[in-house]
Amino acid sequence: MAALDQVTQPLRLAAGATLARAGDTRQYVYTLTDGALRLVRTLPDGRRQITGFVLPGDYVGLTETLRHRHDIEAIGESRACRTPLADMRRLRERYPQLERKLMQRTSMELAAAQDAGLLLARLQPSERLAHFLLRLGARGALSGHPTDVVMLPMGRGDIADHLGLTMETVSRTFTKLRQQALIALPQLHKVQILDLPGLQRLAGDIA
């Protein structure tokens, strides 16, 4: 960690700031330390597709592609660290434990991308939202947050663009899950899971 700190530069990102754009040459590996980022693709018809969210502790840019495949945007005020690719490669060769950790992160990113593809193939909005909440809840639990509380740093519009739904459908589906006593909505950006087994059944086999 000390060697990594020596080649890492901290960054502050204002809400809405763009960290990198699709097509830019990949020069750094980024680590998010606070806030949240979204990975955005613009479809040929101009619509926006959010392929994933980056939360504290997540890395961006670990793949071996030469260019970024997404716009990387800050949802709110965020902090990140960036490490030049050449320095990261040297550290991965020097420290096998770092290489193992980064490989694990890359595998997690691949699994998340596969999950996103499955979500878009599902027909029921409630199934998509249930799986999304469970996935966020599991990531929060790994960081020491309560297992029955899901924090949503992103807005309903971002969730809609991630799940392939309209914002109105996302809002209605949140209300439906609340009426079914699966969740409570104490705050706009906070969800409390009231019936974990019920939410897992709704999410199906991919949860």
Rank of each mutant, 00 (worst) to 15 (best):
M108W: 05
M108I: 00
M108T: 08
M108G: 09
M108L: 13
E109D: 15
E109H: 14
E109Y: 03
L110Q: 07
A111I: 01
A112F: 02
A113L: 13
Q114N: 10
Q114M: 10
D115Y: 04
D115W: 08
D115Q: 15
A116F: 03
G117S: 04
G117R: 10
L118N: 05
L118Y: 03
L118V: 09
L119Y: 00
L119E: 08
L119C: 06
L120N: 03
L120V: 08
L120Q: 10
A121N: 09
A121C: 06
A121D: 10
A121V: 00
L123H: 15
L123Q: 14
Q124Y: 04
Q124P: 00
P125A: 01
P125W: 00
P125K: 03
S126V: 06
S126I: 01
S126A: 14
S126F: 00
E127Y: 00
E127F: 00
E127R: 11
R128Q: 08
R128P: 07
R128K: 15
R128W: 05
L129Y: 04
L129D: 11
L129F: 02
L129P: 11
A130N: 06
H131D: 10
H131V: 01
F132Q: 06
L133V: 07
L134Q: 03
R135Y: 05
L136K: 12
L136V: 02
G137L: 02
G137R: 03
G137I: 07
G137V: 02
A138R: 15
A138M: 09
G140Y: 08
G140M: 07
G140W: 11
G140L: 04
A141Q: 13
L142I: 03
L142G: 02
L142M: 13
G144M: 00
H145V: 00
H145F: 11
H145K: 15
H145I: 00
P146I: 01
P146W: 03
T147G: 14
T147A: 15
D148W: 09
D148K: 02
D148P: 05
V149D: 05
V150E: 07
M151H: 14
M151N: 12
M151T: 14
L152F: 06
L152V: 07
L152Q: 08
L152M: 13
M154C: 08
M154G: 02
M154L: 10
M154V: 14
M154H: 08
G155H: 11
G155E: 12
R156C: 05
G157Q: 13
G157N: 13
D158Q: 12
D158L: 02
I159L: 13
I159W: 06
I159V: 15
A160T: 06
D161N: 11
H162K: 00
H162G: 03
L163G: 10
L163I: 06
G164Y: 03
L165W: 04
L165H: 06
T166I: 04
T166C: 04
M167F: 05
M167K: 15
E168G: 08
E168R: 15
